[in-house]
Amino acid sequence: MSFIRTLRGDIKPEELGFTYSHEHIVCRPAYWAERDADDLLLDDKEKSKLDVADFKHHGGRSIVDATAIDYGRDVEAVKEISEELDVHIVGTAGFNKSFLWDAAIKESLKPVLGDYPTYNDWIEAKSINELTEFVIGEVEEGLEGTAYKAGQVKFGTGYNRITPHEEKTLRAVARAHLETKAPLHSHTEAGTMGLEQIELLKSEGVDLSFMSFGHMDRNPDPYYHEQIASTGAYLSFDGIAKIKYAPESTRIACILELVKKGYENQILVSGDTARKSYYKHYDYGLGLEYIIAKWVPRFVDDANRQGYDGEALVKKFFIENPARCFTFNR
Rank of each mutant, 00 (worst) to 15 (best):
I267D: 06
G205T: 10
K244Q: 11
S203L: 10
E264W: 07
N219I: 08
Y234A: 12
R218M: 06
A253Y: 00
E196Y: 10
Y245H: 08
N219H: 14
E196N: 13
I198R: 13
I240Q: 05
Q266E: 10
A253S: 09
S212V: 13
E264K: 10
E257Q: 12
F237V: 02
H225T: 00
A233D: 14
A241K: 03
G214I: 06
L200S: 12
I240C: 10
Q197V: 09
T250Q: 06
S209T: 15
L200G: 07
H215L: 01
P247E: 04
M211W: 15
L195G: 07
L256P: 11
K261G: 02
Q227A: 05
A229M: 09
I267A: 09
E204C: 15
L235M: 14
E199Q: 15
L258P: 02
H225P: 00
I228S: 04
G194E: 03
S230C: 08
I267G: 03
Y224P: 04
Y234N: 15
K261L: 11
P247Y: 04
A233Y: 08
G194N: 03
A241C: 12
R218L: 04
E226T: 08
L208F: 06
S209P: 09
D221P: 08
S209I: 11
T231R: 09
I255C: 12
P220Y: 00
K260N: 13
E196D: 11
E226V: 02
E257I: 02
E257L: 01
I255N: 05
I240K: 04
I240R: 06
P247Q: 02
H225I: 01
I255K: 03
H225V: 00
A233V: 14
I240H: 07
G239H: 00
L235P: 12
Q227V: 07
I240G: 07
I243A: 09
F210A: 15
G205H: 14
S249Y: 01
S212F: 04
Y263T: 00
I267V: 13
P220K: 01
E196L: 07
L208Y: 09
S209H: 14
E264R: 05
I252Y: 07
I198V: 15
G262K: 04
Y245R: 01
I243M: 06
G205D: 10
S209G: 12
Q197N: 14
Y263A: 04
Q266A: 14
G262F: 04
S209Q: 15
F213K: 03
V206C: 12
Y223A: 11
A233H: 10
D207S: 10
P247A: 09
V206R: 06
A246W: 06
Q266K: 15
R218W: 04
Q197T: 08
